[in-house]
Design a protein around this nucleic acid. Structure first.
Lengths: 195, 195, 195, 195
DNA sequence: CATGAATGAGAGTTCATTCAT
DNA sequence: GATGAATGAACTCTCATTCAT
């Protein structure tokens, strides 16, 4: 596959990404993607053979960029607390944005595709986020910003709460206030008094 | 609508429920339900005009029975802690059971149907569970079983963690151990030392 | 399935039969049959799920009527030789008629569908024809019309020659004269002097 | 067309031949041949424009080698009967071998391509085989091995029986015994007592 | 000559929905 | 009320064939 092919494949993945953001996973047909890409019916099949395969590539690309989740929050002189708070704020922004998110598509995709752990991008991201938060809390405890007896447990708890908020945002709907309340609750648990 | 009609409607809803448990929401077609109910194609349309409408009825029926969520846990001489722990154990059982659950179907349904709050059964259940847990914690605090400064916040936190666990179980997969850890973490936060 | 359905099924089979006669088996698509029957795309699928299934039904119907192959030749006072000669003439007519025959379609169908013996209509017909010819020859020998030492073998030989003529007619092409020559050769072998 | 081109053309024909042996004629697509030859899609079109054209070339090549059909059977001191028997044995082997034969493909091809006589390779082969068998029988009669009144007719009959056996092998299925029976029947007709 | 990406026609199949009975 | 045959739209997927490179 030549350079041009690679470019086109990338183009398809990026275009399909938008389609998935708009319609979720299940509703999307090969035809939808063909039309969004403005290519021919058969053309798409040269590169991918199903929406599932395309979605996996979308996820792969996503996860390559997702490592930046925290990097945005990290600056030279930011403290652990700063970084965690920024991270939580990012998450808040993300989860309140109902559209323009892959969240729904991801859930739908995983509902019907039980992937082996090693291919489960979602799980990888979850686990890696837990680890980073743990380190962050430990750092915060060391420099006296946080109080915490079970850093690992707290990190996990934070992630599950975020997951809970995310899915709730997509289903029962959730207000910015509600998210703030949860973030404050988390921080209070870490001994942070005010934002 | 005669008595007979009501019975038939109920029969369809109950049968459809099983179908939704098996296949989620989106994958289910009117044909699936027709076949499961062993009625005629046209017959189904006499009662319902879409899978969405049927699913709403399933949810309605569900929520009428769901008030028992806690009632199972409440006995004459059970303490607040007993009840909460039992409730959490119930939830654990529920969320580890990937199949035979409406969970997935519910998520899928709410993904594409933004319901007005008053019809959002899911939200109602969530809110009412929060309230009950809050009362439970308050009771626990009063009789010295729990320690808690922000009962409402803690109740909400517990529910979001449970939501997070539920969706994680359906997507990234989760072990019984992981659930136990989260439950213990919650209880520890309430000052309960051991299970 | 009601009486009407049975009628329609029969109608489809009969219409499809004509299509198969015209185009053989492989070239025929579900669409071809839909159009020939002037029914809707989905309508056909209510009755059959593939051209192969339809063709099998065509064959089944065919074989129900095919038992008459000989009956046409049998009259009250016809001798064995008369009947055999009539049968051979029938076959001649049949095999020279390149179009309006299922021959080609049958061959094509059996090329790709290796059927278990019991479902192999073609084989059944072949075997039953051999038996009838054998009886005919035996009868002819008894009343002195034929001379034959190995009735069974001769019957089989006749059938294979006919098969050979049939396939040759479809492939290398064959003239009426050539068929006549073969028929004469067969009859000469039975000691029949002239037609 | 340069020497290289001729070589490539030959290579394609030979490779395509294998494909036709495996899949018959109709099922074979240009894509199949492209893939078997491991050349480019466009490349194939430089040499041939349809599977039919390729198949014709396969047949042409085949018929150039097919004159050996008898030559294998002819040795210095073989008698006419020896040669005929060997020829029949060869045919038996050939027709029992369902796969690795072009038989099916040839039939399928001729079903849909009515060729002018001069291009009908199949007919040429048939006719030439008839002639050779006739000569053989005549030779056999002369040296007293065979008894036969109508050598031409017998030769033709033998070929039609072989055709009948061939097509039967591909459709209703046929056992080695059945073939043997037919061969013996033929030989008995020539006055040969045992094999 | 050779490549292989691209196109678009067309086959197969499934369902939501209607409607005569 | 109830049935189930019928329709037609929509989707998936595969190739023959072309054409810029």
């Amino acid at each position: 596959m030549g350079e041009k092919s690679i470019q086109k494949k990338k183009y398809i993945i990026e275009t399909a990404r938008k389609v998935f953001m708009e319609k979720g996973f299940k509703k999307v047909t090969m035809k939808d993607i063909v039309e969004a890409c403005e290519i021919s019916r058969g053309g798409l099949y040269l590169y991918f053979e199903s929406t599932g395969q395309i979605f996996l590539e979308v996820l792969k690309m996503e996860s390559q960029e997702a490592d930046d989740v925290f990097s945005d929050s990290i600056t030279e002189d930011a403290t652990a607390a700063d970084i965690l708070i920024l991270f939580l704020k990012e998450q808040k922004k993300e989860l309140l944005r109902k559209k323009d998110t892959l969240t729904q598509a991801i859930y739908e995709f995983y509902f019907e595709n039980e992937l082996p752990k090693k291919d489960n991008v979602l799980k990888k991201q979850f686990d890696s986020a837990v680890k980073i938060i743990e380190k962050l809390i430990e750092a915060g405890v060391e420099n006296g910003e946080f109080y915490c007896e079970d850093c690992r447990g707290t990190a996990r708890n934070i992630m599950f709460v975020l997951e809970g908020l995310k899915i709730s945002a997509q289903t029962i709907g959730i207000t910015a206030d509600a998210v703030d309340r949860e973030i404050l609750y988390i921080l209070k648990g870490l001994g942070v008094e005010e934002e």
